[in-house]
Amino acid sequence: MAAEPAERQSEQALLSVDGISSGYGSARILQNLSFAVERHEILAIVGRNGVGKTTLMKTLIGLLRLMDGTIEFKGESIGRFRPSRRAHRGIAYVPQGRGIFNRMSVTENLVLGQGLGGIGRKADFDRVYRFFPRLKERGSQKAGSMSGGEQQQLAIGRVLVGQPELILLDEPSEGIQPNIVQEIGQIIRRLTEQEDLTVIIVEQNLELIHSVADRCMVMDKGTIIAHLTPDEIADEEVAKRYLAIA
């Protein structure tokens, strides 16, 4: 449960974040935050509302400016790159609220996933359709007219088209039926086990975290206050202490 010392961040870490600060305007939401993610890992980030989880995700993809510190991805310092350049390097972002292009068709949304770099570089639509068959059936439909669960499938399927190496998932369970949450959890698990994929997931749904995450970080007031195992997070006492939820 103790905080991991920074020295233990191995050199093979896919992503290492060192002493970063960021926020909106001149307000610093993240303060001197450090962590690392290994390849094939599913790292969950938990914490109460407003502690800076989404700010962290936006800073990692580059939609918020880095005020201090460094972000290294595959050994390259990307902290000053614009988001499109980070995307070309193989980082994919699935935001809270899913960020679907509502006015475009399902297929067009998927095709845009090709803009993401990564290992494959070649778009693989069939693989995405195997995971989410509905996306093939609904191909010509306007993405904005689909249900929340279908949109979440599209949001995840869309980034898989480009075969990124790191996916940033911000609250995938928000506003979605429990059975689809479970399905998405299984797919995330399968992807990291079978393919060269790493996931950072921000989530409030402790059940989902328990079923997918390898490791959890607890955030409070813009920094990391604890590292937990998924079993610890499932413990009501621990959850109460760190998240003020039972």
Binding site: L63, P83, S84, A87, G99, G115, L116, G162
Partner: peptide
């Protein structure tokens, strides 16, 4: 439609 997401999908907006 959504410049932020377009940027996150590798488009230099």
């Amino acid at each position: 439609e959504n410049p932020e997401m377009a940027e996150a999908f590798g488009i230099n907006t």
